[in-house]
Design a protein around this nucleic acid. Structure first.
Lengths: 106, 106
DNA sequence: CAAATAGGCAACCAAAAAGTTGCTTATTAA
DNA sequence: TTAATAAGCAACTTTTTGGTTGCCTATTTG
């Protein structure tokens, strides 16, 4: 589990992984892999790879129970993304002003 | 300029691109491409490719002036990322609780 | 116990991404 | 007006990514 910002961003940059993550977040219970892959068109192995990427980013945890592996979301790593975003938050409302200032000057 | 969430996330998922973006945000003035690429080890062409990716995500704008092309950051697309994040904000503080609930049950 | 189920592992494939080099063109400066 | 500078374009290479298939193992269940 790296948990660095690049790993997290790369994990959520893929739409399928965001879908998987979302499904796990809104699901009240943890879900075994097959039950997750049933919701998607791609193969179980494809889903497993995505799950591994998400797990590596710390966005999901997997708990083995017998022959089943239950997955559940962990939203904590998103805090790191939020922190990164916050650095630029102050610019959100005035970037365009700066832009105009620049255009006026040129 | 797509400006959809996947395009934006993929753009910021690369550490070099985040560095370029950061350099442009904190720079008071717009910077021509050569001046940007001077700050990095990779070739100017490599930088140009990254700039194109950032521009495509709407994170930078490029203004041609004579033989120079001035780049400046636009943080607005980050709002979209922030909105995506917000969906999960409510879970940030209690994901671990849910996790524990699950573990207790099993 | 036999059959079904859940999932892992590994090899493979195609497309995309990250980067390079070489060459060309336009603009500016000496 | 020649030389230098800024940058684009295109071709190419390597690595990563997203996905597949086939087969094997472990755990359940009838």
């Amino acid at each position: 589990m790296h948990n660095n910002i690049t790993t997290i961003l790369k994990a959520i940059a893929d739409p399928t992984r965001r879908e998987i993550f979302h499904a796990l977040v809104i699901s009240a219970t943890a879900l075994p892999i097959t039950q997750i892959s049933d919701q998607f068109e791609i193969s179980r192995q494809g889903i497993t790879k995505h799950l591994k990427t998400l797990e590596n980013a710390g966005l999901i945890r997997i708990n083995t129970n017998g022959r089943e592996r239950y997955c559940y979301a962990d939203t904590h790593p998103l805090k790191e993304v939020n922190q990164w975003l916050k650095t630029y938050e102050e610019f959100w409302d005035d970037t365009l002003d700066n832009l105009n200032t620049y255009l006026d000057k040129s």
